[in-house]
Amino acid sequence: MSAHAINAPSARQKWVAGSLVILYALVTMIPLAWIMITGFKSPADAISYPPKVVFEPTLEGYVNLFTTRTRQTQEFLENNPPQNWADEIVRQYDMVIVGPSKFGERFLNSVIIGFGSTFLSVFLGTLAAYAFSRFKIPLADDLLFFILSTRMMPPIAVAIPIFLMYRNLGLSDTHLGMILLYTAVNISLAVWLLKGFIDEIPREYEEAALIDGYTRFQAFYKVVLPQAATGIASTAIFCLIFAWNEYAFAVLLTSATAQTAPPFIPTIIGIGGLDWPAIAAAATIFLLPVMIFTILLRKHLLRGITFGAVRK
């Protein structure tokens, strides 16, 4: 018998633990499932009470989300037969599609601003964390505390000064402005998380690279970075989730040009009544990038890349 057998769970314990995990997952996934399902309901089914579990799925919500439509006279509708399946769907309300909605644009803004600020946060955070971890920096502890202190109040507490500042600097309603803002909020998290990861990487690897004839930067780039991949991936996920979901600054600082998806989605309500299926469709699509990003990086999150190569 090996020593750790004492702590090995019995079949029954495993079964109970497994059931609890599955139960928890189901409970947390109900709202998500609700939203995804609602996206495929008709407006009537979406608000029917009691809620319909069995219904006839339709792409109405998605069509409404991506298009703008106008009501037309019977005469017009008869003279202009529907041009495609989407057109056909809107005809049941005597409408025709006249063009794309703003959602695509807003979604693209979210992608640019979310990923842009994530990249910048992680890039700057990695460099700063490496410097704090490896070099003697005067007042390093105070600087680190200062960086952390930017997180100590809710970002929205500085909304008004930032609003005024951005107006003067011409950064209001620009992609650059939002990228900088989200980076500023995320950088403290990035520096602290990454410093922890880089501290864990033994200096000997870089020293080995220096001995092997590389410069300090090459050692950082070729030896430290690959081993910090786990930390960089998880930091990137945290940064992206914040930037992606941020609502308050986006409402305040963006409008026509750089508006992201979160402030846009609620405005769908205004078009022809409460269009719950369209809102649900928007929420579903909005969830996808973070979900895909996390799934792609999951492998890094789980893999301890330095496992076993250095004896401690």
Binding site: P202, E204, Y205, E207, A208, A209, A309, V310, K312
Partner: peptide
Amino acid sequence: FQMFALYP
């Protein structure tokens, strides 16, 4: 190196 420091 004492702990070998092979690139993992």
